[in-house]
Design a protein around this nucleic acid. Structure first.
Length: 572
RNA sequence: CGGGGUGUGGCGCAGCCCGGCUAGCGCACUUGCUUUGGGAGCAAGGAGUCGGAGGUUCAAAUCCUCUCACCCCGACCA
């Protein structure tokens, strides 16, 4: 492709809307433009990146035995009512009515549709297993779209769905997808890690996420890894063993109400009473499906809202507002405690039950109770791990320690079990002629977010450094002065040679000054740059440079094809 | 949804608090001359009615009301 014949609107300045480097580079490099919050136009370069990545995904999916189909984006609401998710997915689902006032939704995922497709049509175990996938647009009305393509409302996703007759067969199907995912990300030049994750609104039994580890602020998820065994989980899911549990006091002291004037935060209370946060228990009030509940965690811990939600079996969970807290505790915010709380469900973290002589709020203004002990002074049958794991704690599976990293989710896999097949009555006949629901799995890869994640990982101060297999072009030919016949003819000769050998080339045939071409070239991040200028041309050579390295080398103009191939073989 | 902020040529911004003549600046764009290995110089030009609606006023980008859009923050305070 010639630069003057495509459309690459690079920007010199950063649009004010972009926060993340990757988002800024996509805008500045002329890859995307925003149409509305979380809705983007993919310009020619982005279109090529998407195609390249989608093709890798397609090839590996096909290789793993999956079959491509395309399902609609517009769904009748009834289908979502069948599975019951119409009431649980919440406001994230875009809903609309047609001219007949018929309720429709824009699909954010397609479990219902694919299950609907196969129920009634696929009747025999002989047709199983089957894996159907698509590469399709999705809509999710995110609370707060941000970070460009990373959290958009409209985005492209590869989603696959497996149907199996039993657990053993399902395990094979699931494993095949995991292997395919590793192959896909490897080919895309992205070293990803598989972590355990919560199943969330998808439901089902277990789930994994594929994460690209980054150390920029683009890392949207906190991850926990064991430094010894393979344990890896995201923060929502991660469990741990405490490395240094506080020693229990030798005797249980009598509980006592004390004044804590003006001390309502953990910090204020601990410094006023001269104790560590580990001696404190905080009582947090939440609304679970609009009903108040209390959650008790040690003062030094962070509450894990997903764990809490799961232990309650709640659909919606939010922090109670100050006014609700005050109504329940009958005192100002900051002094809630388990003793004397009205009869609401109370979830207690196990660490609290092991603590002795600890401090809680007294449900009275500016008062706390010291020397409180679980079992003696208050009780609850709901004891569950509801806190975040932290770096430094012990691995739950071995004697290693946990470390924290940040990552960007690029893929996920869910073991759905019979959640959808059962609720939607999607059954087949097994070898004994018995009717059974399909065992299902669902598998996503963010087609538009993955390239942005790649940029977040691979860039420098000048611009993008694409992994070769998802780069819009492999080679950029940069004649310093296209008006000069020697430059032009050399550029054309190389261009034709590479193109006729199926190497994607971008020829910067603009009548721009050299500097402009260099800056734009670095910005858009094409892996190999071939510079044609007087200095080297006199010797019958051109300059070849990999975007990820500072140095260029001179290669003979007649060996360009071979040299380019050699370099391509060496780079990521 | 709650809190904060911003909407002024394609992009980035100034002007607004303390209303006043043809609304500025940089980049980009067009034309010409010069220049030509890391975002060129000079000259001449085109393009905005100040997010929208209503109001106050002799006069509104500027003040007031409503509205829309976009951006940022929002568990660890109980």
């Amino acid at each position: 492709m010639r630069w003057t014949q495509t459309y690459i609107p690079t920007l010199r300045e950063n649009p004010s809307e972009a926060e993340l480097v990757s988002h800024q580079l996509l805008l500045r490099g002329g890859y995307i433009r925003k149409l509305a919050a979380g809705v983007y136009i993919y310009l020619p370069l982005m279109q090529r990146v998407i195609e390249k990545f989608a093709n890798i995904v397609r090839e590996e999916m096909n290789r793993a035995g999956a079959i491509e189909i395309t399902m609609p984006v517009l769904h009748p609401a009834e289908i979502w009512q069948m599975s019951g998710r119409y009431n649980t997915v919440g406001k994230e689902q875009m809903r609309l009515k047609d001219r007949h006032e018929h309720e429709l939704v824009l699909g954010g995922t397609h479990e219902e549709i694919v299950t609907y497709l196969l129920r009634g049509e696929l009747k025999s175990y002989k047709q199983l297993p089957i894996n159907l996938y698509q590469i399709q647009v999705k809509f999710r009305d995110e609370i707060r779209p941000r970070f460009g393509l990373m959290r958009g409302r409209e985005f492209i996703m590869k989603d696959a769905y497996t149907f199996d007759e039993n657990e053993e067969s399902f395990k094979v199907s699931y494993q095949k997808m995991l292997s395919a995912y590793f192959a896909i990300f490897k080919r895309a030049g992205l070293d990803t890690r598989k972590v355990e994750s919560d199943t969330g609104a998808m439901g089902g039994k277990a789930a994994h996420e594929f994460m690209l580890i980054v150390d920029t602020e683009g890392g949207e998820q906190q991850l926990i890894f064991c430094d010894k065994c393979g344990y890896a989980a995201n923060m929502e899911k991660a469990i741990f063993r405490e490395a240094n549990p506080p020693k229990p006091d030798p005797e249980l002291l009598e509980k006592k109400e004390v004044d804590t004037p003006g001390a309502s935060t953990i910090e204020e209370v601990t410094s006023y009473l001269k104790v560590t946060p580990k001696k404190l228990v905080k009582t947090l009030i939440f609304l679970a499906d609009s009903k108040p509940v209390a959650a008790l965690v040690r003062g030094d811990r962070e509450l894990n809202i997903v764990k809490l939600k799961n232990s309650l079996g709640a659909n919606e969970l939010e922090m109670a507002s100050a006014s609700v807290v005050e109504k329940i505790t009958r005192c100002p915010v900051g002094f809630a405690g388990p003793i004397g709380l009205p009869n609401i469900p109370m979830i207690v973290d196990p660490e609290v039950t092991r603590l002795t002589n600890f401090i809680v709020g007294a449900n009275k203004n500016e008062k706390h109770i010291i020397n409180v002990n679980f079992g003696r002074d208050f009780n609850s049958k709901s004891i569950a791990d509801i806190v975040n794991a932290e770096a430094g704690e012990m691995c739950p599976h071995c004697d290693g320690h946990l470390v924290e990293k940040k990552g960007i989710e690029v893929g996920n896999t869910f073991m759905l079990g019979v959640k959808y097949s059962k609720s939607m009555d999607a059954n087949f006949l097994d070898a004994e002629g018995k009717e059974k629901p399909f065992i299902m799995g669902s598998y996503g890869i963010g087609i538009t977010r993955t390239p942005q994640a790649a940029i977040e990982k691979y860039h420098d101060e000048k611009g993008i450094i694409w992994p070769k297999n998802i780069a819009p072009y492999l080679v950029e030919i940069l004649p310093l002065n296209y008006e000069k016949d020697e430059h032009k003819s050399a550029a054309e000769q190389i261009y034709n040679e590479l193109v006729s050998n199926n190497i994607d080339c971008l020829l910067d045939d603009r009548l721009e000054r050299a500097g402009v071409k260099f800056f734009d070239g670095d910005l858009i991040g094409i892996p190999i740059r071939l510079v044609i200028g007087d200095k080297s041309l006199k010797q019958g050579k051109i300059e070849m440079k990999y975007r990820g390295s500072p140095d260029s080398e001179l290669v003979d103009i007649n060996d360009v094809l071979e040299e380019v191939r050699k370099l391509l073989g060496k780079i990521n």
